[in-house]
Design a protein around this nucleic acid. Structure first.
Length: 602
RNA sequence: GGUCGCAUAGCUCAGCUGGAUAGAGCACCUGCCUUCUAAGCAGGCGGUCCUAGGUUCGAAUCCUAGUGCGAUCACCA
């Protein structure tokens, strides 16, 4: 039973005894710093039940609680606020119940499985900052859901078919120079060091295509065509479209090229995922699932969920639900975006029957799309459709404005990771704290710090809000940042390494009393389980980030104001080391939920 | 135009299901390293919580309208 629950019980009893009245809820909050006390009861709402002035009610309740509840040591009343002082014994006892629990705050796994989709890149260009937000969010939400007791499958949908892929393929066929082996360049044979990563090479040809396409448009316009006509008639575009038709028809040569170039991209992506520290349990490819989507469109057509227009295209009428009509199959019978999404969802449930819900990590530009998708799946009669959730997040902007691939203002994911690591390195060398470690160790630490800065910077913001990514600010390692928190963890580790006495004992309140800062820390630790549940419910890593920051600030204040290893007596020393240990463990676990590592030293 | 989202300090963000004088960080200004890692701590400066109504003992928080910004309403993905 939590202290709140205990208090609630007694307050209820107090009401029936003192006033013969009944209340069912009590509003608790933690007492503000400027007042004495730990827990505050807001008595204003109770005045509806008993007509009296708030001070008097507070006094009466306070007196009752002091007399009847062991944990309540004292109280004071300020207007409609009853501030309750909780006895140290309670906090120390509570601390003793969690100090050995290395997964304090986490709930054991149940059979309730959730599939979390994130990343979902196109295979025609490298990952950028926008994908990074997506990846970090998806990974973190998955970890948070696990910690809250769910079984989780991480997955992605790879957008590996369509005209955009054909553009890269065509440009490579046409423009690729020979590599070191005399054949057209590949990631292995390319003479351009920037293109050794497959996604970079393929992305390079996507850009090449666009350049050539623009040239052709310009020359057509010069010949007297309108720009609109030129855009549609440019030979290179027509050839790409032709290639797509061949792909859909299963043309051997085109399919082989497609497979080869996609494989390059996958390998490149995998490297980025590894560097970023995100992973997946299973993969889905649109080229595999769009056919299943088409099947269910046919079925929905039979059952009347969809209808066919004169030209042969298939639609779903959602006007009764306040939405528009939505096309689910083109007139020529080919699949649209949503067709394959329908197929993918169904396929996933087939593959993993224990999945009861799915989370789609996709930008808020697709809010409407997911509303429609979920509604259609419901109309198709899938029971699980009600447990689908679109984890919608805001775009990432730069100080210069939006990221636009065509204008070259995109922040490349790989570059950014390298940059952050370099910044960590520079700062670290300046401070000179790692001078006697090996290069290998140093490199690992720089990486941990750089990534920690990046991840925390992005995850601390509420997902639904857009992020302004200021490169200057993102490499700031002071204040509310990842490195600040990592630093606190490293400092605690230094203390634990130095503590050469036995801390494996349980202290009672008789043996040690609590310093104010120690009590504050225990109160903060007490919140952790609830924060995890909250973060899971709201799909919000930001709640974990904010909590961790508050915990760390509280610890630093303790650290600077109180000597841990230099405490007055052995009991205090032991207790403070234990407390530091639990705080460190909580930082590590909380950061784990954000995909951030906690370094032993920095 | 319809629909959805956002608006809090100079900047970047917190603020839980309505509760005390709206909180952090950055920036700017003061102090604190012979003592556990100063990537730190202690403090100062800084706000018409977009505007106007409403609900109530009480509103940054809920409701309505307006303003601004963004997204979306494709046989693109």
């Amino acid at each position: 039973m939590t202290i709140q629950e205990t208090l609630l019980q007694h307050i209820k009893t107090a009401f029936s005894k003192l006033y013969k009245a009944e209340i069912d809820t009590v509003e608790f909050q933690s007492t503000r710093k400027e007042f004495e006390g730990d827990i505050t009861v807001v008595t204003f709402p109770m005045l509806r039940v008993v007509k009296m002035n708030p001070e008097q009610l507070g006094e009466n309740l306070g007196n009752y609680l002091v007399k009847h509840v062991d944990e309540v040591k004292a109280f004071n009343v300020v207007k409609g606020f009853l501030n309750i002082v909780i006895d140290d014994v309670f906090y120390l006892n509570f601390f003793n119940t969690i100090k050995e629990n290395s997964t304090y705050g986490f709930k054991p796994q149940t059979n309730e499985a959730i599939m979390v989709e994130y990343s979902s890149p196109n295979t025609n260009k490298p990952l950028h900052l926008g994908h990074i937000r997506n990846n970090l969010l998806g990974y973190s939400v998955a970890e948070i859901l696990k910690a809250s007791g769910h079984k989780v499958y991480k997955t992605q949908i790879i957008n590996d078919r369509g005209i955009h892929i054909c553009k890269s393929m065509l440009a490579w066929k046409r423009f690729a120079p020979n590599g070191s082996d005399g054949n057209k360049e590949t990631p292995e044979t390319t003479l351009n060091p920037d293109l050794r990563k497959g996604d970079k090479l393929v992305g390079n040809y996507y850009v090449k295509f666009d350049q050539e396409y623009k040239k052709e448009i310009a020359s057509l316009v010069a010949q007297g065509k309108t720009e609109e006509a030129a855009k549609k008639e440019a030979p290179i575009l027509l050839e790409a479209q032709n290639m797509l038709l061949k792909w859909e028809a299963g043309d051997n040569e085109v399919v082989a090229l497609w497979q080869m170039m996609n494989a390059w991209v996958y390998e490149g992506f995998e490297t980025t995922y590894n560097n970023l520290g995100v992973d997946f349990d299973c993969y889905y490819y649109e080229s595999d699932t769009y056919l299943l989507g088409k099947e269910f469109v046919a079925e929905g057509l039979k059952s009347g969920v969809f209808f066919k227009k004169e030209d042969g295209s298939v639609w779903c009428d959602l006007t009764a639900d306040g939405l528009d009509e939505k096309i689910v199959l083109r007139a020529d019978g080919t699949a649209v975006y949503i067709t394959q999404d329908i197929g993918t969802a169904i396929q996933r449930i087939k593959d993993y029957p224990d999945v009861e819900g799915m989370v789609y990590t996709v930008g808020n530009e697709q809010d409407y799309h997911f509303k429609v998708l979920f509604l259609i799946l419901k109309k198709l009669g899938f029971e699980w459709a009600k447990n689908l959730y679109h984890l919608s997040y805001g775009m990432v902007d730069l100080p210069s404005g939006k990221m636009k691939s065509r204008e070259g203002t995109v922040v490349d994911a790989d570059d950014l990771i390298v940059e952050m690591t370099n910044t960590a390195k520079e700062l670290s060398q300046e401070l000179g704290k790692l001078d006697n470690y090996s290069d290998q160790e140093k490199h690992t630490i720089y990486n941990t710090i750089g990534l920690g800065a990046l991840k925390y910077y992005i995850l601390k913001v509420d997902p639904k809000k857009r992020i302004l990514f200021d490169p200057k600010e993102s490499v700031d390692f002071q204040g509310n940042t990842g490195p600040f928190i990592q630093y606190t963890y490293a400092r605690i580790q230094a203390i634990l390494r130095k503590a050469d006495f036995n801390t494996n004992v349980t202290l009672s309140a008789v043996e040690t009393s609590l310093h104010e800062k120690e009590k504050e820390l225990i109160k903060q630790l007490e919140l952790f389980p609830e924060v995890i549940q909250n973060a899971a419910q709201n799909h919000s890593p930001a709640l974990i980030a904010n909590y961790t920051y508050d915990l760390v600030k509280e610890f630093n204040s303790f650290y600077q104001n109180v000597s841990i290893l230099g405490a007055d007596n052995q009991n205090e020393k032991v207790f403070r080391v234990q407390l530091s240990q639990v705080v460190a463990n909580t930082i590590k676990n909380a950061f784990g939920l954000l995909g951030i590592k906690a370094p032993e030293r920095m």
